[in-house]
Write a protein that binds this DNA or RNA. Structure first.
Lengths: 139, 139
DNA sequence: CTTTATCTTAGAATAGTTCTTAGTTAGGAT
DNA sequence: ATCCTAACTAAGAACTATTCTAAGATAAAG
């Protein structure tokens, strides 16, 4: 999911966003990981060596990036909003023990037929959340 | 989903919970509705005619009922924890416009084969979230 | 009727997120 | 290259949802 610097810059510009060091760092960080971090985790990751961004700016950047559709939120546990730079349709696995979240490729699960649901609904998409225990937690 | 009073009392006792007016009211309220209310909505619903329960008690009751498995949380939007007295497996439809949530019976969607996922995961279940627009929001 | 562990409650405390306001800056215009 | 300004960052205050605390109340067993 990681991309070269120049590609990230172009992606941001295409969305008419100024390429600031903070915004670049937040997006690049999200692109480089698949663990669906919280705002807090991104903050501490970015600032672990040198100060890069304030907390308020992390929240601003995440909100802006979400508004333009470059990232999305993943809500699978109470009081914890996680972020994902993979905006293509895909499913999630969540470990009920440690809370870890992993992506499941769209093609890994068969397509679900939604044509027989309530006809008054205009259905635009769906996603599957698989619950279980991850390898590390099965000790 | 609504049940007679005596049945609700017995259900609570079976879980070794004291049947207090507040706890009864919270559980009965949840059983009587299918709109997946938030703690705040339950609070104002219960107290709309006469004071029945404090906010702290609503949260206490919801937590207790969840711990014994009589209700469960539904997390589909940021900062809003909703509750559901339907603890049988089922799916959800969420209107992206008004945020309304509706249940989808388990049998309404075909069963998904999870046997080819990461073999290191111990899978315990899954659920589908369908996104779209509800009837009222299609004006 | 007693007794007591459990429960309720108001208010304080906490956690996560958003708002405010002042200063800074990316990047187009000159 | 420098100027200009709308967009951006940041510190701290504010807000919102939830949990905690501690003191009094009560369900229900004996």
């Amino acid at each position: 999911m990681s991309k070269p610097t120049e590609e990230i810059v172009q992606t941001l510009k295409r969305k008419q966003l100024r390429v600031t060091p903070q915004r670049f760092a937040v997006y690049a960080n999200l692109l480089s990981r698949t663990d669906h971090p919280t705002a807090e985790q991104i903050l501490s990751d970015l600032n672990q060596d040198a100060p890069v961004s304030s907390q308020a700016t992390i929240y601003n950047c995440l909100q802006t990036l979400r508004e333009v559709g470059l990232i999305r939120e993943v809500l699978l546990e109470e009081g914890n909003c996680r972020y994902d730079a993979n905006v293509q349709p895909h499913h999630h696995f969540r470990c009920g023990s440690c809370g870890a979240i992993a992506d499941i490729p769209w093609q890994a699960l068969q397509t679900i037929d939604l044509s027989h649901l309530n006809p008054d609904w205009q259905v635009s998409g769906y996603e599957v959340t698989v619950h279980g225990t991850c390898e590390a937690c099965q000790a």
